[in-house]
Simulated scan of single mutants.
Amino acid sequence: MLSVSDLDVSYGRVRALRGVSLTVPDGGSVAVLGPNGAGKSSLMRAIFGQVRPTGGTVEWDGEVISGRPAYKCVRSGLAHVPEGREVIARLSVHENLLMGAYVADRSTVAEQLEQMLELFPSLRRRLKVASGRLSGGEQQMLAIARGLMSRPRLIAIDEPSMGLAPAVANMVLEGLRKVHASGTAVLLVEQNAALALRLAEDIVVFSHGEVVTSGSAKELGPEVLDHYAA
């Protein structure tokens, strides 16, 4: 289980997070919603050691990982797909995928690669193509598949629908639903509430660096959708 407790993050005099708490249970799916500047990406950076919290803790399986380097988080069963995809443009799709498997047992890499190509079939046709030549949707699929190549128990994904046409965003979502159905926990940061609620079992809503509401997606979903549609 991933547990974030009373987390504070500051950039100089600016407090990006104030007392944020949330949990992602084993095999669960949690969506973090909120507008730009709400602190969602700061949460991700704090979980994966890209910024050091000024207060509070991040725990994974009961062990404090606050400030742990990202590569150590990956070795412990966590994966992070950052906002903006960040594929390595000069490397082929195949090479990007193999980079995601650097902590995996070598004997399982071929099997995992095949699973990723079944999850996102459009990547199979593009294996030898430089990743910088892919469409935005294909790059997002590649970024998620690369994160999954390490066989994580939890994958955290930051704004997967950003800049994508609705049909392409739906394809990405369907891939994530299959990932979750396979038993992998998902922490999803999104502005698109309608899309996030199709995946998440629980939701946490951020505003100005604080949690303003949280609970079951089934119970809070209609209220959240009304708010975002207003």
Rank of each mutant, 00 (worst) to 15 (best):
T108V: 15
V109M: 08
V109C: 05
A110R: 07
A110V: 09
A110G: 11
E111A: 14
E111Q: 09
Q112M: 13
Q112T: 15
Q115G: 11
M116A: 05
E118H: 06
E118I: 15
F120N: 00
F120P: 02
P121Q: 04
P121A: 00
L123A: 06
L123M: 08
L123N: 03
R124M: 01
R124D: 07
R124L: 13
R125M: 13
R126H: 11
R126E: 00
L127W: 05
K128V: 10
V129T: 15
A130H: 06
S131L: 04
S131C: 10
S131N: 03
G132Q: 09
G132D: 09
G132I: 09
G132L: 10
R133S: 13
L134N: 04
L134E: 05
S135N: 07
G136F: 00
G136D: 02
G136H: 02
G137E: 13
E138H: 04
Q140C: 06
M141T: 14
M141W: 01
M141V: 08
L142N: 00
A143V: 10
A143K: 14
I144E: 08
A145K: 01
A145W: 00
R146Q: 08
M149T: 06
M149E: 01
P152L: 13
R153N: 05
L154H: 02
L154F: 02
I155M: 02
I155S: 07
A156W: 03
I157G: 04
D158G: 13
D158C: 04
E159F: 00
E159K: 07
E159D: 03
E159C: 12
E159S: 10
P160D: 11
P160I: 05
M162D: 12
M162G: 15
M162H: 12
L164G: 10
L164E: 03
L164Q: 07
A165T: 09
P166C: 05
A167I: 13
A167E: 15
A167K: 14
N170I: 12
N170M: 15
N170T: 15
M171E: 14
V172D: 02
V172C: 04
V172E: 02
V172P: 03
V172H: 00
E174P: 11
E174K: 12
G175E: 06
G175I: 12
L176A: 12
K178F: 08
V179C: 13
V179N: 04
H180G: 04
H180C: 02
S182D: 14
S182N: 10
T184W: 07
T184E: 05
A185G: 10
A185H: 00
V186L: 06
L188D: 00
L188T: 02
L188N: 03
V189G: 03
V189W: 05
E190K: 11
Q191F: 08
N192P: 05
A193Q: 01
A193K: 09
A193N: 09
A194V: 12
L195K: 00
L195N: 11
L195A: 02
L195H: 09
A196M: 05
A196Q: 10
L197T: 05
L197H: 07
R198L: 14
R198G: 14
R198T: 12
R198H: 04
R198D: 06
